[in-house]
Amino acid sequence: MRILQVAPNHETVPPPRDGGTERIIYELSQELVKRGHEVILFAPNGSYIWGSVIPYPFYGDDAIASYVVENLPENIDIIHDHTFDSALSRIEINVPVVHTIHLPVYNPVYFPIYVSRSARETIGGGYGFDVNNGIVVDEYEFSHEKGDFLLFMGRIVREKGVLQAMDLAEMTGQRLVIAGPIHDEEMFIQEVTPRLNRNSLLQYVGPVGGRVRQDLLKYARCLLFPIQWEEPFGLVLIEAMACGTPVLAMAKGAVPEILEPFPEMMCDSFEEMAGKLYDYQAPYLPEKLRYYVGERFSVSRMVDRYLYLYQLAISGYWGS
């Protein structure tokens, strides 16, 4: 097939540091090329895949739809729209289009694909399809050895639970490393920075990638995921487990779906999470966590599912 991938216009594909959606687009594109498909990617300047890249000559998502139509390559079999507002749903294109909804937002599209069953049910009202995100497990370093720190890794916004992660570390007297881009600057300045200044056990290291990201994920004693919203997936959960690192997560959104075989790593309340952190002992073997991710959340499995849905869209199937 000749497949067109359309990325958001914020981070390069792949991203240098954070950017879960862009990492998924990259892995999806690479695996499709490996399987003999031709992939063309619309993405920010500096992006690369084994296929072809058409860079956006502007910043932001507003002009993506018109730019794609004006520069649409010939003989495209399927378009895969990853933009956060499903930009291509608002224009006429004489090519089948599928839309992955990466955020917990409702975009009224004909062929929606959610990143979890939970997101499809709660956001999409049960309509559409779901494909779990996947990673290449061999790209994540495994370690039995763990350090003396807890880890919070994700966007620095209220709904991701960074404040609750700090509360947990302070209550239990443990070191916490906070990694991720600041997306709520006011909250960071007013509520995070004063606590960092007061407590040397709390450390913010900014957005991370490469060696720093690998070391944090594989050496963390535990990844904290105290989300305050209905998380549509939670890529960092499977990344940590691929490194053999246990997690403690609030059982919201897709978390019960992702951690289904590991009930001891899920919590129904902040108090339960705090209780488990006192004198914390990992409840599952690191090898078991990595094996599970490889079996359940591989890129290969993700691409199998997407190829099936591409064929449905090409055949004219638009039902749920």
Rank of each mutant, 00 (worst) to 15 (best):
I238G: 00
G126Q: 02
P14G: 06
V208K: 09
A313S: 08
D138F: 03
E287W: 03
I178Q: 05
F111E: 08
P194L: 10
S29Y: 08
Y106G: 05
F233W: 00
Y291L: 14
R35V: 10
P44M: 11
G244Q: 06
K160C: 10
C243V: 10
G173M: 13
V212L: 12
R195H: 10
Y48R: 14
A119I: 07
G275D: 11
A282F: 03
G319L: 09
A87D: 06
C267P: 14
A43Y: 06
I40G: 07
G147H: 12
L151A: 15
T172V: 06
C267M: 02
V131W: 09
V247E: 03
P15G: 07
A251S: 07
F142N: 00
T83S: 05
A274W: 03
M266H: 05
E264V: 04
R213C: 08
C267Q: 02
L312D: 10
F225A: 07
K252Y: 11
G316C: 03
P283R: 00
M1D: 09
R17T: 15
P232F: 13
Q228W: 14
E22Q: 12
H80Y: 07
N133S: 04
V98E: 03
N9V: 11
P96C: 07
I64K: 07
L150C: 08
S86K: 12
A165K: 02
H82N: 14
Y106A: 07
S66A: 13
R296H: 05
P55M: 03
G46M: 00
N107R: 12
R35T: 09
E170F: 12
D268P: 08
R290A: 02
E272K: 10
R305S: 10
Q174T: 05
I54L: 00
A7R: 10
Y48M: 09
L277Y: 05
M265Q: 04
N197C: 15
R117E: 11
G51L: 00
P207T: 04
D279S: 09
L163W: 03
H10W: 07
Q5T: 15
E141Y: 09
Y278D: 15
Y110C: 15
T122I: 12
